[in-house]
Design a binder for these strands. Sequence first.
DNA 1: TATTGTTATACTCTATAACTATA
DNA 2: TATAGTTATAGAGTATAACAATA
Lengths: 173, 173
Amino acid sequence: MATAPPPLDAVELGAYFALIEVAGLLRHAVEQQLREETDISYVQFQLLARLGLDSPTGSERMTDLADGVVYSRSGLTYQAGLLEKAELVTRGQSADDERGVTVSITDAGRAVVSRALPGHVEVIRDLLLQPLSRTQVEQLYAVLEPAREHMRAAPPRSARARRGGRSSPAAAS
Amino acid sequence: MATAPPPLDAVELGAYFALIEVAGLLRHAVEQQLREETDISYVQFQLLARLGLDSPTGSERMTDLADGVVYSRSGLTYQAGLLEKAELVTRGQSADDERGVTVSITDAGRAVVSRALPGHVEVIRDLLLQPLSRTQVEQLYAVLEPAREHMRAAPPRSARARRGGRSSPAAAS
DNA sequence: TATTGTTATACTCTATAACTATA
DNA sequence: TATAGTTATAGAGTATAACAATA
């Protein structure tokens, strides 16, 4: 072990703890809303929203679907299986890559998203956005965006058997 | 249902999604670090950190301990039970309130926190703080702090049998 | 009667590793 | 050999509701 890393100062620590707590409370509130108004979990909503709102075609490859939502491949398979059983998505072979699986949102899936969205938005507004000025919302986005990019790029230190992570075979105990 | 709420604009939506994703990735990374270097989970670390770092006495009442960390009382009882079994905390009757339970961190508990902290800090620095300027870290804190205060105050819309919440017994199917 | 905390139960989710099939 | 995805298994965590004891 090298020299002890310098501790975080009050602002750094405060930003970190506030981030974790705010995101946790927000997510918890949205989960509750989803439980009351729909039959899907937060993760499932995220996956459906990616397919239904982000993707122009309503379809995405399994691997591409996982980013930032599910942290293991088996977890994604599990969630996709639940969504398929509920007939909110379909799974089919990818066109170009025989190994690939393409997930597509169904009309029923879109309907669920549409039904959940108003309440979802309301929670976010009430809980997160309401006490913030427009400038603060913009700052929040401007600060978190580079952090997100950085985190997506950087493998979590211990590059496990994750996706493309096999950069430097050094390190690791 | 009233009129549909106006959808969120790109910045609001971006701030929300970035918040959830950044916090999720960060938490996931820290959980992994804790799993590799210690025997406690993230929630347990948070509880120990509150007792060992925040509280001047190293003790706190069960109810006060839960804020922003655990979202149900039974969840806290469960976690406190695990920590007690591992001899990282002790539980005893509160002095003033016979119903209360006071949780105190032990020397072993403090040792675990000390052991986990360097790696924990390193993850936060590498993953969250590194790509941000000092100003951005300050902005992040300045924006999230009022959001946290607001969320702590506001019951999650559907005031369940939570703490003081039993306002309107209407609604509910 | 309200609040503090615990217990029991059932369920969801996750991680790990082994496995198949294609590139 | 590496990658895409699935499966099986096992474990951790959570919510719910019923309960006991004190305020």
